[in-house]
Design a protein around this nucleic acid. Structure first.
Lengths: 142, 142
DNA sequence: TATACTATTGCGAAAACTTGCAATAAGGAT
DNA sequence: ATCCTTATTGCAAGTTTTCGCAATAGTATA
């Protein structure tokens, strides 16, 4: 669990607190090594922290997402999954089988700069999810 | 309402049916000229079709999205809004005030080609939502 | 170390969304 | 025009997600 103590100063610096609930959820996300649904986060976190509430899981995931520590990826059908924001990377998800590959941020860089220039918006380098068909599914769907 | 009859042959060609519910919802989306939440779609559609059910609204929006007639844009916090997929365009949404600007697909073209080449995925040219801060909010947030 | 401030949690209720199933009705075939 | 097939709907129950509020517990300060 101490492996998530790196977040403590980051929280404090922004006026937020580190709590057992947040530690546990961060810990679960770190060791899952991939996307987790809110229900999965709840299940896994409960093992470490039995008193944990679903409401807190939802609130914590939203909090961590807002603060940029966690990425929310929107799968089809309104389903949302979460994962640790270790790096500046994005995802390409197969809309048929759900398999995903990571995309580096670099290729998006020039697009971002171009859009910032033309719109005046300052873009977050947050997570972007693109959808498509993976090579296997392109074949199997003839 | 006849302004959505263009969809009839497209539905039939894929083995789906045109129903009053789908017509009404498409009609509402067309004349809204922007994002609508499921609740808003329900409210507005109900005026034309009093018997309409919320369940049907959700199912229809998901159906239309899957079929590519409607775009689902994911706002912050798991909120999803829908709009007619008139064109191949994307959105840049201000994470502070929610204001959005449209982005042409063109600037994404080279990125798409590059990713298709490197990943083997065939990308959908579906809707992408990027987040950032609009010029006004950049100032107001000092 | 004790105190005060307030961010965060748990609880319970509400709202939003989904699902199974029987009844309905779109649209191709006769 | 009528019949048949089955996609689609409404209903009602189930599940998931949100919200208000009082109680709890981090953490800065003395």
């Amino acid at each position: 669990m101490s492996c998530v103590s790196e977040y403590v100063p980051q929280f404090r610096a922004r006026g937020f607190r580190m709590t057992p609930q947040r530690m546990t959820i961060l810990h679960v996300l770190r060791h899952a090594g991939g996307h987790l649904s809110p229900a999965q986060v709840y299940e896994l976190s409960r093992k470490d922290l039995p008193g944990l509430t679903e409401a807190t899981v939802y609130r914590t995931l939203e909090f961590l997402t807002e603060q940029g520590f966690v990425l929310a990826a929107h799968m089809g059908g309104g389903k949302i999954v979460y994962e640790l924001a270790n790096a500046n990377h994005h995802h390409l998800i197969c809309r048929n089988c759900g398999r995903s590959v990571a995309i580096e941020h670099a290729p998006l860089g020039s697009l971002y700069r171009q859009l910032e220039a033309s719109t005046g918006y300052k873009l977050d380098s947050t997570h972007v999810t693109l959808f498509g068909l993976c090579p296997d599914c392109q074949n199997s769907l003839n």
